[in-house]
């Protein structure tokens, strides 16, 4: 299968002040596949993920060299609108972070940001997003309920629904299940597999089994280097690099 490259990272370096956090990253992320980024803590995987929707912009002393192209356009280019980028490249965080408002308003937040005011359209978007995130049946009678008053696993699916409500093309997930129990984790993994039909998904995870279970491509990072990037089955069965093999077999990390 030959799919188009949705995101292309070219000769990218990233520095926090003097610290060289990402070193010469080159990576092509294919459309409508799930790409997992694995590696030990502090290897730069979250940093790389956050560069893809420029959430790193908020950090001071951060400098990026090289290019990141979304559909061939440089997202760090002068004329690229950051807010539009973040609409196209959505994000789900490690800790569920619903806003302290109703479930409905959480989902409608993004569409409202981008100018949708019509009540009927918002209703449709809310229902569609909640259905996509497989949580509609659980909350449909409680849309007015404060989103903080539901369980952590449900909150995370609300956050996924919230990200989907602005109709992104890419969904970035930063260890989306690390704060959840096994049952909620299983639900979210199932959901991720469903979503790849329509979305390009990049997921950072600590959990190698998770990467093996859900992803099509896997990137292994170590100390700011992209050590190996290949089809998930190859990475986990015939890793080319000794370091990848050591990590996967649990020798460090």
């Amino acid at each position: 299968m030959n799919r188009k490259d949705k995101i292309v990272i070219k000769d990218m370096d990233l520095y926090y002040g003097d610290f060289h956090a990402l070193k010469n990253i080159n990576m092509k992320i294919k459309e409508k596949y799930i790409t997992a980024i694995i590696g030990p803590s502090g290897c730069g995987k979250s940093t790389l993920l956050k560069s893809l929707n420029r959430m790193n912009d908020l950090i001071e002393g951060l400098r990026i060299e090289g290019n990141i192209l979304l559909d061939g356009k440089d997202i760090y280019g002068e004329d690229f609108d950051v807010n539009l980028l973040r609409k196209r490249v959505g994000m789900v965080f490690q800790r569920p972070n619903p806003f302290p408002i109703s479930i409905y308003d959480n989902i409608a937040y993004g569409p409202r940001v981008h100018g949708i005011r019509d009540k009927k359209r918002l209703d449709e978007i809310v229902e569609r997003s909640l259905r996509l995130a497989a949580i509609w049946d659980e909350v449909k009678d409680n849309l007015k309920k404060n989103a903080l008053r539901i369980s952590g696993g449900q909150q995370q699916r609300i956050c996924i629904a919230r990200a989907l409500a602005v109709e992104p093309e890419v969904l970035l997930m930063d260890e989306p299940t690390s704060a959840l129990d096994p049952i909620s984790t299983a639900k979210i993994e199932e959901l991720i597999e469903e979503l790849k039909r329509d979305y390009t998904i990049v997921i950072v995870t600590h959990n190698m089994q998770q990467a093996a279970r859900v992803s099509d491509y896997t990137a292994f990072m170590l100390k700011g280097d992209l050590v190996e990037y290949d089809k998930t089955e190859d990475i986990f069965s015939v890793p080319k690099d000794k370091r990848t093999e050591d990590y996967i077999t649990g020798r460090f990390g």
Binding site: L58, N83, P98
Partner: peptide, 22 residues
């Protein structure tokens, strides 16, 4: 919580919108 600000920015909301709404 900073995660609320991040959540809002990640949806494409600007600084002012985030401040007033969240």
């Amino acid at each position: 919580d900073d995660s609320l600000r991040e959540g809002s920015f990640a949806l494409g909301a600007g600084m002012l919108y985030t401040i007033f709404k969240i």
